[in-house]
Amino acid sequence: MSTIERICIEEKISESGDACSLLAARTGLPKGRIKDAMNKGALRWRKGGRGAFKRQRRATAILAKGDEIAFFYDETLLTLKPPLPICISDEGQYSVWYKPAGLLSQGSEYGDHYSLLRQVELHSNPRREAFLVHRIDRETTGLILVAHNERAAAKLSQLFSGRDVEKHYLACVSGEIAEVGAKFTIDQAIDGKNAVSHITVLDSRAPASVQSEPSDRAQDLRKIDHGCLLDVRIETGRKHQIRKHLQGAGFPVIGDHRFGGPQHPMLCLTSSMIAFRCPLSHKMRRYTLERAAVEWLGGGD
């Protein structure tokens, strides 16, 4: 068996043929592995070298002379089994999903099987295309919207890019900040851009993940009984905004290894509520994740 672990090819096709055979000849990989990689989105194709690249999953697809391809093969990534998202509400033109920890919001050049969008396409009923509306970090769990046509994606994306969506997160941080019910605002700029987070203390002694039995996620889940549970409402959506704001305030999120949080098998941060006036139906919509469903609080079973 081939020991090739990673291949990156970006080139223009010089001789027509089916995608699987051309890639097998070009890479030396068995056709079975080529087919698996294509099915998982590792091949992107641009007909005649014009327009945007699109994923090509059919191994029998004919690639013509002059077409451009980008084939990014990573054996380690392709063997990963993605955690499955859960549909919270299906509104037809869009749906609301619970994204588990570890699942990417969208794919990369190496494929999309480990992304929310691809898993939504595979598990929607009825099956439909999935378009990105907004993102949450890979390690973050919780509510996220997915559009099912280009019109809905454009309108919802525009809505989420402004300040017309109410977005709340649950976060468990290290230490005791203040008494229950206390409120404060962090407005520290991020990467030179305005960023505002409104904090409410929900529980000053909240345990983060009370599981004691071994699980697939970690064999040593341990109780952290010194956390402080917060509700965080964000006005802006800068990259890692909540994590950076809480770290800067001296209260890093538990499990946030990147921004100085205490060790924990999960990042204790969950998108818990989204509310907005739908630009499609013009009706108010509110989607809430019950606290009992939050994995790092011992829920989600």
Rank of each mutant, 00 (worst) to 15 (best):
A52K: 11
P214Y: 02
Q93K: 11
Y94E: 12
D225T: 13
A153L: 03
P262K: 05
T3E: 09
C8Q: 15
I13P: 05
I4S: 13
R135P: 02
R26P: 00
D256S: 10
V146M: 05
E68T: 05
H134R: 02
A64F: 14
G248L: 04
S124V: 09
E139M: 04
D18N: 11
E109W: 12
R151V: 13
E150N: 12
L143C: 02
I34H: 15
P265M: 11
F72P: 05
I62C: 11
Y94A: 07
G162I: 10
R128L: 08
K183G: 15
C228M: 03
D216K: 06
Y169R: 01
Y98T: 01
T60C: 11
L170A: 06
N39W: 03
K239N: 07
S197A: 02
N149F: 01
R50S: 12
F53N: 05
E290W: 01
T200W: 06
S281K: 04
A249D: 14
L104A: 08
F53C: 07
Y73E: 12
T270N: 13
L29Y: 14
Q211D: 13
E91L: 09
F131Y: 13
E10F: 15
Q263T: 14
L143D: 02
G192M: 06
E129A: 10
D220H: 09
V173E: 10
D231K: 14
R55A: 08
Q93I: 12
P30W: 07
S271M: 07
D36Q: 15
G255A: 08
C20N: 00
V232T: 00
G32Q: 05
N149W: 03
L43Q: 06
A153P: 01
A218P: 08
P252F: 02
S174Q: 06
F184K: 09
A249E: 09
A70T: 14
L229T: 04
I199P: 00
Q219I: 14
W45C: 09
I224S: 06
R285N: 12
P83D: 13
D256I: 06
S105A: 09
A293L: 11
F276R: 00
K31G: 10
E15D: 11
E15I: 11
S281A: 04
Y114H: 13
G248D: 12
E75R: 09
P85D: 05
L103Y: 06
